[in-house]
Write a protein that binds this DNA or RNA. Structure first.
Ligand SMILES: [Mn+2]
Ligand SMILES: [Mn+2]
Ligand SMILES: [Zn+2]
Ligand SMILES: [Zn+2]
Lengths: 128, 128
DNA sequence: TCCAAAATGAGAATCATTATCACAAGTAGA
DNA sequence: TCTACTTGTGATAATGATTCTCATTTTGGA
């Protein structure tokens, strides 16, 4: 774990919302001014591999990520208005046992729920 | 509905697997030799809006789509070995009622299961 | 300390997707 | 038929996120 990687991880920790790699670069530069984009992209890739980061879609052609500190397998609720993220348990009881598709071996799956967080649903966008 | 749009739709119908826009362009040119990439991208966008196409991830930086003739809300099983696609009913009973996240109003969600289709699981990749 | 392996960053390259824009085709009304 | 207007098309340029290159540090262990 290098100094740069620590900066990126800390920057990711700072977000309460979904963020882009650009967001991450800007945040990481607060503590590591000279950090390069390639380094951040590399850190993102390794954090994604490690499960510390998960991609939850994209916005204007940029990938959107959320920080996951939870170890167990889980999924996400992403507010499309303010970007707030909640981590939610996996709702799929036994996806591999779907009788209609016998023989299909599920190795991974991705569930993302989009909508409005409580704050945005009540006070409107930018309200949270 | 123009001649070009019809060609793209027909090309999409021809795929039994997930496909990229490039795949679609090549297939559409079989019947509309001069069709341009912009036109295909525009057709893809409108079919996606109409629910006739759904994006199910990406491969090497290119978006992957599947053709959906089913009208009802559903999701997909995508074979990561051969690209085979199965359409599967929505496994989420009442996603909006998750007690742990009261207040979050779910407006859309995306569920994709990746794995191996029966053929690939038994005979190995390229076996299906 | 010494060294091989891994990480870094500036910049170039890639390349999927979009934007432009001039033109073709249809449409509706006069 | 003429005209005005809208829509679709396609060649091409532009965009921009991500990846690659490569010379230069940095790291962590012996
Ligand atoms: Mn999470
Ligand atoms: Mn479908
Ligand atoms: Zn569903
Ligand atoms: Zn398969």
């Amino acid at each position: 774990m290098t100094d740069r990687r620590r900066s990126v991880a800390a920057a990711a920790d700072g977000f309460m919302r979904a963020f882009t790699v650009d967001d991450l670069i800007a945040a990481a530069r607060a503590h590591s001014p000279g950090i390069g984009v390639a380094t951040v992209y590399r850190a993102v890739a390794s954090m994604e591999d490690a499960g510390a980061l998960e991609r939850v879609g994209s916005r204007d052609g940029s990938a959107l990520y959320v920080r996951c500190s939870v170890e167990e397998h889980h999924h996400h609720l992403v507010c499309t208005a303010c970007g707030a993220v909640a981590h939610t348990p996996c709702p799929l009881g036994a996806p591999a046992s779907d009788a209609a598709h016998e023989g299909f071996v599920v190795t991974s799956h991705q569930v993302t729920l989009y909508g409005l967080c409580a704050a945005c649903a009540t006070t409107g966008p930018e309200g949270g």
